[in-house]
């Protein structure tokens, strides 16, 4: 791979990494969710710097070109991430349902108590 391209990739990854860290600092991304993106960035840099090793891995696995392996691994990675997101959405739905129910029940309790107090006063 030409050295210019390697530098370009590493530079883009570093910018992405900085962006991730900035979001963590601003508390718009929690560290648990950020970890996967930090690991991805580090992983890409390692891959780019040791292309020869990966080329021989691909070769031994019977994958003809390195780009095919890159697409394959990237695809699996994305499926993993998306699955986790759908799981988190389901859990959050459950939590929202619970909160909504509790609010309705609490409001009712408050109302009942208000009525009771009014009745006590008039008695």
């Amino acid at each position: 791979m030409p050295i210019k391209l390697i530098i370009l990739i590493i530079l883009s990854v570093l910018i992405f990494l900085l962006y991730v860290l900035k979001n963590v600092k601003k508390q718009q991304l929690n560290i648990e969710n950020a970890l996967i993106w930090i690991l991805l960035s580090v992983g890409i840099i390692i891959c780019v710097l040791s292309l020869n090793i990966f080329e021989s891995i691909a070769h031994h696995l019977g994958i003809e070109t390195l780009s095919n392996m890159t697409f394959f691994v990237g695809f699996i990675f994305l499926i993993f991430v998306i699955f986790n997101i759908t799981k988190k959405i389901s859990i959050q739905n459950k939590k929202i349902t619970n909160l909504t129910q509790e609010i309705a029940l609490l409001k009712k309790e408050v109302k009942v108590n208000e009525v009771k107090q009014k009745n006590n006063k008039t008695n």
């Binding site: 929202i96 349902t97 909504t100 129910q101 609010i103 309705a104 029940l105 409001k107 009712k108």
Partner: peptide, 15 residues
């Protein structure tokens, strides 16, 4: 009881 969000029939009945 008034649910502030629409949470679906299951959640409503559970309330």
């Amino acid at each position: 009881l008034n649910l502030p969000n629409n949470i679906g029939i299951g959640g409503a009945v559970q309330t």
